[in-house]
């Protein structure tokens, strides 16, 4: 049975409208729940840089986050910014990091998540810095927590959009992220050195020091993207890091 071209066009048009309508309806209906899921996921990742969140329920994560994280936004020079050009307040959690990434480093907003003892925001335990960069196929991002010396890495979490499962996607694995722990971002002379992923998985002990860690075999480009992301974001946050350090030395005098 051959149908006329008109019939085919009308049929496909109607089908498209019905299916399209169905999808946009579902999208609208599920949007609030999806936004909430994304919010929890973001907070989970931020906390993941300093504590083990795998056993926490969603509500526990939100409560713990509210109790232990103080978030601020700074500019390239490390100065606190509280309002945008239009005068409305900036919320660190709502800073769109991918969007900021498209601007010049000097013009970006840099959120800092300060992890402190529960209920006491003076007892700082770590500074969590969000980062964003490019892997092999698409964007990668993460949160790196620095100890209060602002030199030692306390912990890190990374995530990605489209890295290869089993290769580049391993940056999401705890085992890979733990390699960053206790590494230093400054050298003895106080110059920014950052931490680099080497090529390959089983580098000799001599190649690994406080600035170099084992990479992921089969994912050299993702590893390089990760190293570049760390290096550039540590340098962007340097203004803030210097400022906190100088405040500390004043306080200790």
């Amino acid at each position: 049975m051959q149908q006329s071209n008109t019939y085919i066009i009308v049929f496909t048009a109607i089908l498209t409208i019905i299916l399209g309508g169905l999808l946009s309806l579902a999208n609208q209906g599920l949007k609030p729940m999806q936004d909430k899921s994304i919010e929890i996921d973001t907070k989970k990742q931020i906390l993941g840089a300093v504590v083990d969140v795998s056993e926490m329920s969603n509500q526990q994560i939100l409560d713990y986050y509210n109790g232990t994280i103080k978030s601020i936004v700074v500019d390239y020079n490390g100065e606190l910014i509280e309002t945008d050009e239009k005068g409305s307040p900036i919320v660190a959690e709502e800073v769109n990091i991918p969007k900021n990434f498209k601007q010049q480093p000097e013009d970006r907003q840099y959120p800092v998540f300060i992890y402190h003892a529960e209920g006491n925001d003076d007892a700082v335990e770590a500074y969590i810095l969000p980062m964003y960069g490019t892997g092999l196929w698409g964007p990668i991002w993460g949160y790196v927590a620095l100890e209060t010396d602002l030199n030692t890495i306390k912990g890190a979490v990374f995530d990605h959009e489209t890295e290869t499962p089993g290769l580049g996607a391993r940056i999401t694995e705890k085992e890979v992220q733990q390699r960053f722990e206790n590494k230093q971002i400054y050298d003895e002379n106080g110059n920014l050195e950052s931490v680099y992923m080497l090529k390959g998985e089983s580098n000799p002990e001599s190649a690994l020091d406080e600035h170099h860690i084992n990479g992921m075999s089969g994912a050299t480009i993702t590893g390089k993207g990760l190293s570049d992301m760390l290096k550039s974001y540590f340098s962007y946050y340097q203004g803030y890091i210097e400022k906190v350090k100088s405040e500390k030395s004043v306080a200790s005098l």
């Binding site: 299916l19 169905l22 999808l23 579902a26 999208n27 729940m33 999806q34 899921s37 996921d41």
Partner: peptide
């Protein structure tokens, strides 16, 4: 494709992990 997208959207809303 429509049905699969629906599944994907529902998962995104209720089981993000």
């Amino acid at each position: 494709a429509t049905l699969v997208t629906l599944v994907s959207e529902v998962l995104k809303a209720y089981s993000f992990d």
